[in-house]
Amino acid sequence: MRETTTPVGDDVAAGMKRRTILAGAAWSVPAIAVATASPAFAATTTTKKADIQITSVQWNAQGGTSAVPADATFNADNGLFVDATVRNNGPDTITGVSVAISLPISAHQLDPSKSHYPEASDGWSYYTSYDDVTVPGNRVVTFRNDSLTLAPSQTATVRIKYWTTSDKGVTVDNIKPFVAFQATDPNVEETNQSNNGEKTANSYNVHT
């Protein structure tokens, strides 16, 4: 029997900052391209500005409708979900949003070749996944909704379903999923990237 014990604490929030979420995903805003063939026909790309803020994030067991339990313990192949809400604080309307979730690999089913891989609400499509370079042992899974339009002050909520590992002998405590949003349009300049992501307030444990 293999037993893995991995402490996962508040350092997840410190580690999964903007640079972590950007790692492995094409979310950085490039410089504005300017065509210089002729001054009379010079073209510029108009950059929109927006403050993409995560306003709430919480986990629960799949099928759960009551308040989020505190410090619950789950066994092998148990289903959970995270509900996360994003708000566009403006000033411009944007179209296209990505969401990323970071989870401990040993405690969750994060192998795309197996069943019960993370999935998101209708309209959100799997985009990519990669190891979290600043939180060793975590993996980031990202989804996109390229048709989602958010006017200033408008919000949207995404549900990400995921499952605990089916491996036996795993013990991971104090898990707080971290979720972050980002505009997918490279012509959107984010004016405040410090509020894109947040961990859940309550933690849970996985004991298989």
Rank of each mutant, 00 (worst) to 15 (best):
Y127V: 12
A76S: 11
H207R: 06
T47Y: 12
T44P: 02
N88Y: 05
T45I: 15
D132V: 13
V133F: 05
S102G: 11
T6W: 02
I160D: 04
S115T: 15
K17F: 06
A61P: 07
K49M: 11
R139V: 11
T36C: 11
R19M: 10
T134N: 06
F181T: 03
N88W: 03
K161H: 13
G64R: 05
K176R: 12
N202D: 07
F178N: 08
A40N: 10
V68D: 05
D51Q: 07
D83G: 03
D173H: 06
M16N: 11
N89M: 03
T45Q: 09
G9F: 01
A100N: 04
G15Y: 00
T95P: 10
S66Q: 12
I32Q: 07
N89D: 09
Q62W: 09
S102E: 06
I160R: 04
P186L: 09
G24M: 06
R159N: 13
S129P: 01
S38N: 14
V133L: 07
F81N: 11
L148V: 14
Y204T: 12
A33M: 09
D185P: 13
A76W: 03
S121E: 02
T157R: 03
T128C: 02
R87A: 09
Y130E: 09
G123P: 11
G169K: 00
D185H: 10
Q58S: 14
K199N: 07
V141N: 05
V97M: 04
L110P: 02
R144A: 10
V68G: 06
A76P: 01
D51E: 08
S194H: 02
